[in-house]
């Protein structure tokens, strides 16, 4: 925990007390090792982790009871990192529902497509890797220089010739009440990270939305095959929307009348959001304004006591990391 006053502290303490057989310890306080605040939050737990396998799971992620067992089932020596699809659930309000729709359509199909074309990406909401593998690329210490430590972790694993594997079951992100501005700011941040890391792909992102792909597809099919643009657009919009709605349902989004409305709203917001992303290189995260450099690297801005423990960030979102047994031992959850 970054902050000793975090309301989750007594919950964790009670969990530890209820399971005395599980070797667990609560570590309070973060350590500045780089400009990425999430890595600063995790680094002490990471360094003190006893075993080789490390799971990083954000505090707003809910996993099934057999989550670890299912993750471990995929592990072999050729696997460098495991990640999971994130399903937005329990959304409330306009921002929350848009957020859930974004996760359950745009990101879900984008991530699935990336794995299908052998260009896997890692989502830091839930990931698992070996400390011994991370040590080969400099560990979390190196990742602290980047804003998207998850993406870089996946890239490092690829550079080591190891595989990134996606778990068969998605993890659930509890969304709850979410303001529109929070939703917008979060996706501007994610988008700018993507833009700085893969600028070439970023220019094609509008085509992952329904409208741009419908317009260009209709024009192309008319030119190549003489198919009516209106007919193409109707078929395209119908198929796309039905597939998206099925995906949203599959990922646990509540089925209700307003679901198509949020879906349509998200699609409408796609282009303005992309333009906003394209217009700048700074992001706001955890109360800090961070400037991204090419490749998603962050400008270092150490606190006054560089390297010292510091607490008390009011907007900190905690991340929990725990160490699992290595391949010779039974993992525990």
């Amino acid at each position: 925990m970054a902050d000793a006053n975090d309301p989750v502290v007594p919950v964790i303490q009670r969990l530890i007390a209820d399971h005395p057989a599980a070797p667990a310890r609560l570590i309070v306080g973060d350590l500045w090792i780089g400009p990425n605040p999430k890595v600063n939050n995790m680094i002490r737990g990471y360094r003190e982790a006893k075993y080789d396998w490390v799971v990083i799971s954000d505090s707003n992620v809910r996993v099934a009871p057999d989550y670890l067992k299912r993750m471990v089932a995929h592990l072999d020596l050729g696997v460098g990192i495991m990640t999971s699809l994130v399903a937005g659930q329990n959304a409330e309000g306009i921002g929350g529902n848009l957020e859930a729709t974004f996760l359950n359509t745009y990101y879900a199909r984008g991530m699935s497509l990336a794995f299908a074309v052998k260009q896997p990406v890692v989502l830091g909401k839930s990931m698992m890797f070996r400390k011994s593998v991370a040590a080969r690329f400099g560990g979390l210490e190196v990742l602290s220089r980047y804003l998207a430590e998850d993406y870089i972790c996946g890239e490092a694993v690829r550079q080591l010739g190891l595989r990134t594997v996606m778990a068969t079951d998605p993890v659930a992100q509890h969304i709850g009440q979410y303001s529109f501005s929070s939703f917008w700011a979060r996706h501007i941040r994610w988008g700018r990270i993507r833009k700085m890391q893969s600028p070439l792909l970023f220019w094609f992102e509008p085509f992952l939305g329904i409208f741009a792909s419908a317009i260009f597809g209709a024009l192309a099919f008319q030119r190549l095959f003489g198919i009516s643009p209106v007919l193409f657009a109707c078929i395209h919009l119908t198929l796309w929307s039905v597939c998206d709605l099925l995906l949203m349902r599959r990922l646990g989004q509540k089925v209700e009348v307003k679901m198509p409305l949020f879906w349509f709203g998200r699609e409408l917001l796609g282009l303005p959001m992309w333009l906003h992303i394209a217009s700048g290189n700074t992001v706001n995260w955890r109360g800090e304004r961070l400037k991204l450099q090419s490749g998603g690297i962050l400008e270092a801005n150490p606190p006054a006591l560089s390297g010292a423990t510091f607490n008390g960030r009011t907007q900190a979102q905690s991340s929990a990391s725990l160490s699992l047994g290595n391949s010779d031992e039974q993992p525990s959850s």
Binding site: Q159, Q293, S294, G295, I297
Partner: peptide, 11 residues
């Protein structure tokens, strides 16, 4: 690049 350099040198 500047961004990939830290990983490169560590690996």
């Amino acid at each position: 690049t500047r961004a990939t350099w830290p990983l490169y040198i560590e690996i």
